[in-house]
Design a binder for these strands. Sequence first.
DNA 1: CGGGATCCAGTAGGATACTG
DNA 2: CAGTATCCTACTGGATCCCG
Lengths: 122, 122
Amino acid sequence: MKMTPPPRDRADCRAVSEVLSRVGDKWTMQVVVALLDGPQRFNALKRQIGDISQQMLTRTLKTLERDGMVERTVCATTPPQVEYALSALGRSLSEPVRQMAQWARAHLPIIHDNRRRYDERH
Amino acid sequence: MKMTPPPRDRADCRAVSEVLSRVGDKWTMQVVVALLDGPQRFNALKRQIGDISQQMLTRTLKTLERDGMVERTVCATTPPQVEYALSALGRSLSEPVRQMAQWARAHLPIIHDNRRRYDERH
DNA sequence: CGGGATCCAGTAGGATACTG
DNA sequence: CAGTATCCTACTGGATCCCG
């Protein structure tokens, strides 16, 4: 069986880049992580995340739904209830994200330090 | 000793988000991967990546240098020669990126399919 | 050769007000 | 409660021309 090659191919680079820029926007990861605990309704999600506007939460959830990462369930009651849940695809993303999170925790202070020193020199 | 917890903390989410959006721009990953083979000069890098403008290559390299991910070496000859090399920090990033690349390869077709179907329904 | 300086279009992010 | 509609700002990506 074939081993998965390292990402040296141009198409691979673009694929990685596409995924990183897709999930690398300001709110996507925070929404995904908030949904890891289980399904959440809109305003509960909003409260948990904190300083996100309802506009940006709506947009982020819609994009995640479009990509098939979250599933949206509407109960036609009054008041309406809408539940958002991670799909299997969305949960599977949390694995590579966990790796990236470890790297971020380990190296982000160094990066910030590098930036500070660079800016002082220029 | 303490196990590294999953990225549920708010500060962690933001750290992940920051790294993902930082390296998730259009060219950063392609430059990093191009430099994995070894140090490269500016125009060699430009030729290898292909359709990047010299403007965007300059910006991307400068940001990577500022973060301490690449090291820039100038030989004051005529014509001037400038070599770019990945630092240890830059190379260490390639590990979580490899994980992300595998996920991208495995799931990007599904995502594109999901989008297509979503757009047809709306 | 390896950039810097400008200018420009498109998109992401956000504040606010309104609605079924 | 769960959005939509509008308007605005800032940043990203890019094209072009210039420079030592």
